[in-house]
Amino acid sequence: MTRFGKTLALESSGDLEVNELNTIRWVRGHEAVVQDLKVTLATIQGEDPFDPEHGLDMFAATGTSEPRLKLEVVQALDRDDRVKKVDEVVIDRDDSRRASVQVTVTLVDDSQHTFEVTQ
């Protein structure tokens, strides 16, 4: 079995998740990978000084065609060595410049996961 590690749980806002006792929660395995992939898509490429390739190339993705946005999402997720393949990217844009992206990925252990990110 492939180990996917653990990370601190995040709220949808990106803040650390804490309970009523101000205790943080860890996420492990597939849940940790999916959370990391969401963070990847919410990170502007170049924003991380220790890994400048990490994240979504917002300059290429913003205001572009749907096929180009899908390509940018796939390229960002393919950089994660835990992702075997990106199976599907569904984009829902509203009238503003915001988009909701639903992604289905297959991880290296052949498990399939679907998640959504809104930017």
Rank of each mutant, 00 (worst) to 15 (best):
Lys84Cys: 02
Arg97Asp: 14
Val18Gly: 07
Asp36Leu: 03
Phe59Tyr: 12
Leu69Asn: 08
Thr114Gln: 12
Asp57His: 09
Ile91Trp: 10
Glu66Gln: 15
Asp81Gln: 11
Thr43Asp: 07
Gly29Trp: 04
His54Tyr: 15
Pro67Gly: 12
Gly46Phe: 10
Gln75Pro: 03
Lys85Phe: 09
Asp80Arg: 08
Ser100Thr: 15
Phe115Val: 01
Ala60Arg: 15
Ser65Glu: 15
Glu47Lys: 12
His30Ser: 06
Asp87Ser: 08
Val18Ser: 07
Thr23Pro: 00
Gly5Glu: 04
Gly29Tyr: 05
Arg3Met: 05
Ala9Cys: 07
Leu8Thr: 11
Thr2His: 11
Val33Arg: 01
Leu16Ala: 09
Leu56Lys: 05
Lys38Arg: 10
Leu8Met: 09
Ala76Ser: 14
Glu66Leu: 15
Ser100Arg: 15
Leu41Cys: 01
Val73Leu: 04
Leu21Glu: 14
Ala61Glu: 08
Leu37Glu: 01
Gly63Gln: 12
Glu20Trp: 12
Ile91Arg: 09
Lys84Thr: 00
Ser12His: 07
Leu71Lys: 14
Ser12Ala: 13
Asp92Gly: 02
Glu11Gly: 06
Arg28Ser: 11
Glu53Lys: 06
Thr40Pro: 01
Ile44Ser: 09
Leu37Asp: 00
Lys6Gln: 11
Thr43Gln: 07
Arg68Cys: 03
Val101Pro: 00
Val74Ile: 15
Ile91Thr: 12
Ala99Leu: 04
Pro52Trp: 04
Lys85Thr: 13
Gln35Leu: 02
Asp95Met: 08
Ile24Gln: 08
Val34Gln: 05
Ile91Ser: 05
Gly29Leu: 02
Glu47Met: 09
Gly46Cys: 09
Val33Thr: 05
